[in-house]
């Protein structure tokens, strides 16, 4: 891998991590586990459309692991990792059929996949399916948050690469 490419990936991972840490400082108005804005996913969505799949996976892996370290909540790692893997797989598949004009749509579906992954991890860890009741709530908030991060990534791409 070229040094320049590596530096770019490192920069993107750092940006994602900074957004993750800033987001922790924003009080969450919804007292339901798993609901959050997911600002760091702006970087993920951007990377899905601009970098190769394995490069995006590297950024996400670094962000999820270091996010758990900085967040001081290692037990959240499993949930976020499961969600992130599902989200990434879903978005990488959609990337193939969706043009760059529909990044917001890709992001929404990605968020839904993320919620399904989170709940699957929660069911596995808590050994009860009753937590699945959270899925509809997470899906509603997740799609809205996904729309927001997706639109942000779309505007970002337009500004960073005005020619395309």
């Amino acid at each position: 891998m070229k040094t320049r490419r590596l530096a770019e990936l490192g920069l993107l991972a750092a940006v994602a991590l900074i957004m993750f840490v800033i987001e922790m400082r924003i009080p969450n108005p919804f007292p339901i586990p798993g609901i959050k804005l997911g600002l760091a996913n702006i970087v993920t969505v951007y990377a899905v459309f601009r970098y190769r799949p394995y490069e995006t996976a590297m950024i996400v892996a670094v962000r999820v692991i270091l996010g758990a370290v900085f967040g001081g909540n290692p037990s959240a790692l499993l949930y976020s990792a499961c969600g992130a893997v599902c989200c990434l797989l879903g978005m990488l598949l959609l990337r193939k059929i969706l043009p760059e004009k529909q990044i917001w749509l890709c992001s929404i579906i990605g968020a839904m996949f993320h919620n399904c992954g989170q709940i699957a991890a929660a069911i596995a860890v808590m050994r009860t399916v009753s937590v699945a009741a959270y899925l509809p709530l997470l899906l509603v908030s997740g799609s809205l948050a996904g729309l927001f991060t997706g639109l942000t990534a779309q505007f970002l791409l337009k500004r960073i690469h005005p020619s395309s």
Partner: peptide, 24 residues
């Protein structure tokens, strides 16, 4: 929008609506 994008958007909207109803 391409045809595929429309189908995906419709599916996402359907999931969203079902989720809203279930949430209530």
């Amino acid at each position: 929008m391409t045809k595929q994008a429309k189908i995906i958007a419709a599916a996402a909207a359907a999931v969203f609506l079902i989720a809203v109803i279930l949430s209530v």
